[in-house]
Design a protein around this nucleic acid. Sequence first.
DNA 1: CCACACAACTGGCACGCGTAAGTGAGACGA
DNA 2: TCGTCTCACTTACGCGTGCCAGTTGTGTGG
Lengths: 335, 335
Amino acid sequence: MTGVSGGRRVTSADVAREAGVSRATVSYVLNDVPHQKIPEATRQRVWDAAARLGYAPSAAARALRTGRSEIVLGLLPDWPIEHVLGRLIQQLTNTFAENGLTFVVHSSAHPARPLRDIWKAMTPAAVLALQDFDDREADAMRAAGIEVVMAMHGSIRGEPRPPLVSEQPIGALQARHLAAPHRRLGYAYPDLPGLDVLAQPRLDGVRKVCAELDLPEPDVRTVPLDAPGAAEVVKAWLAADPPVTGICAFNDNVALAVLAGLSHLGLRAPQDLAVIGVDDIPGASLAHPPLTTVVRDTDAIARGLARRVVDRLGGKEIPAEPLRDELLLRVRESA
Amino acid sequence: MTGVSGGRRVTSADVAREAGVSRATVSYVLNDVPHQKIPEATRQRVWDAAARLGYAPSAAARALRTGRSEIVLGLLPDWPIEHVLGRLIQQLTNTFAENGLTFVVHSSAHPARPLRDIWKAMTPAAVLALQDFDDREADAMRAAGIEVVMAMHGSIRGEPRPPLVSEQPIGALQARHLAAPHRRLGYAYPDLPGLDVLAQPRLDGVRKVCAELDLPEPDVRTVPLDAPGAAEVVKAWLAADPPVTGICAFNDNVALAVLAGLSHLGLRAPQDLAVIGVDDIPGASLAHPPLTTVVRDTDAIARGLARRVVDRLGGKEIPAEPLRDELLLRVRESA
DNA sequence: CCACACAACTGGCACGCGTAAGTGAGACGA
DNA sequence: TCGTCTCACTTACGCGTGCCAGTTGTGTGG
C-alpha cells in the first residue's frame, strides 16, 4: 500500500525491481501466460511485490501495445433513460467489470462529435448498441476490428441474426392475459417516434396472439401522455365496432395515461376497459386501480448481454437465438 | 475517406508522409501548439492530409505519453437511475464530448472490482462524483493528480466547498408554496437509505422556510411505495396535533404514494391533504389529482457541471458557490 | 564575406506494456 | 567429456504520441 501516496505511477518495472526479477517475468506472472515455466515461489514473490506496491497496470500502455482497449462502448438510445434502462446500465457496468472490462456509455442520439471520432479514439474492444444505428458506421467498426453486438431491435448489415433482446414475447404475454375475458384488443402506442424499435415488435407479439386465437386485429392508437388527450383515444376505442375492451399498453407510462383518460371520462378499469402495461415502474402499483404489468428480469438480460460480448471477444461464436429472458406477469387490478 | 476501409490504423506518420512533412510537424499543427512558426500553407497541407486519410489520434498512445487520458469518470449513485439522472447522463455525455472529453459512467455502488482499479487503469482526467464517496479514495485520486469534482451533497476532504448542485432550494420552494394556505407541513421521506444525500438537504430547505415563517417544525415521516403502507402514514399526519395539511414529498414517486394512500382512505388532495412532489415524471400529470411538482433545469445543470470540470482541467479556479439552477414550480391540482 | 538571428522544420527519446527470441545453468544420455 | 535438452528466466523491440533539442535554409547587419 506504499504506492498510493507519492507522485509517480507504479509500473511493472517497479514490481520487477521489488521482486528481484525482470519485467518480462512480472508480465508473465501477472497475466498468467501459459507455457511459461515459472515456479510457484517466484510467482508468489511477484504477486506479493505487486500487492505491496499497489500496482495496477496502465490501461493506456496495454491498449497501445495490444491495439485494443478493455473498453466496451455502449451506445444509448435517444429515448429517455429510466428505470429499466437505468438498471440495465448499472448491471452491465458491474458484469463487465467482473470480466475485467470497463463499460462506457455514450448517447448516439445527437452526438456532439461524430460517433466515429469516439470509437476511433478509444478503440473499444466491443460496441454494444442498445439501439440500431447506421449500417456504414457498423461496417467501419467491423473493418477496424471491433466486435459489434446489437441488443435491441434492428439488424446490422452482415449479421442477419435477430436482435438479442426480443420484445415480441412481451406483447404476446399481454395479449394472452387479456384474451381470456376480452374479444377485442387495442394497442396503446407510444407518442415518441424513437420508441418504434421497441413498440413495433411488441405490437407484433400482440398481433400474433390475436391471429392465433382468432381474434380481430388489435386496434392500434397512439396515446399522448396527458389525461384529456388520452381520454379522446379511450372514447374512440369504446366507440369502435366491436368495442375494444382490453388494452395492451407499450409501457407503464402509456398505461397510466390510458388509466388517466378513463378516469377523465368517469370510467373505470377493468370494468370499462382493462389495461396492462410493461416495466412495473414505481407508479404502477400506486395507480387507481393498481396497474397489471409485465416485468422482465433486467439483471438476467444484463448478464446475458455481457456474457455474449465476452464470449465473442474470446472468439466464441455466439448463438443466434435471442437471450432467454424470463417474463413475469404482475397481476394487479387493472386487468 | 480512404482510411476507413483496410486493416491498418491511420497514424500521424501516415499523415506526415501524405503531407510531405515530419511527424513532429503534424503533431504541432494538429494540436495547435503555440510558439511554433508554421506557415498557413503547411498547416493546410497537414489538415487536408489528415482529413483525406480519416486520421484520428490514438487515445491510448496519447494517454500513455501524457500520463492522462481524456476521459471523465462519472461515479453513479446507487439509487435507481431514472428520468432526471438519465437526462443528466445524456447531457453530460454530450457536453463533455463538445469539449473533446469522453464521459464514462461507472456505478460506485457495489463495484465488482475495487474502484481504485478502475481509475488507476484508465487514469481519467477528472472524476465527477454524483454521489459522495470515500475520503481516502478521493485523497488517493488527488495524489495521483486527478481532478475530483463532487456534484451531489457531501464534501470531499480538502475541499470544504459546498456541493455543486444544491438541493435545499427545492425543499424551500415546496414549503413556500404550501405555506400560504397551510400552517402545518409534513415531509414525505423516501424509503431508500441511499437517498439521504438528496433527501436531507431538501428537508433542510423545508425546515428553514418553516423557521422563517414561524411555522412549527415539519412532521417528517418515511413513506413506503405502496398504497396501504402510505395510507398508514397519511393517517398519522392527519391525526397529528395540530394536524398536518400540506406535504412536501421527496420526489414524485413518493408524492404518488401519498396520493395513493389518501385515495386508499377515501380522501382527496388537496382538500384533505395537499401534496407537492419533485421531478415532474411522466406519471405526475397523470395522477388523480394531477401532481403539483418542482422541476429543475437538468440541461443547465449538466452544462454547468461539465463547464466546471473543463475549467478546472484548464487550471482555472472554480467558484465556490453552487451552480445557478433554475427551479420551476409546476402547479397542477394536488397543491 | 562572414556572423548571426530567426523561421521552418526534423530526429529521436520516453511513456508502460506484451511478447518473441535469446541465454545461461543444470540434468542427462552417449 | 561433450552435446543436447529443458527450465527459468532476461534482453530487446515496437505500439503511436508529445515534445525537447537540434539542424537546415534564408535573409540581414556589419
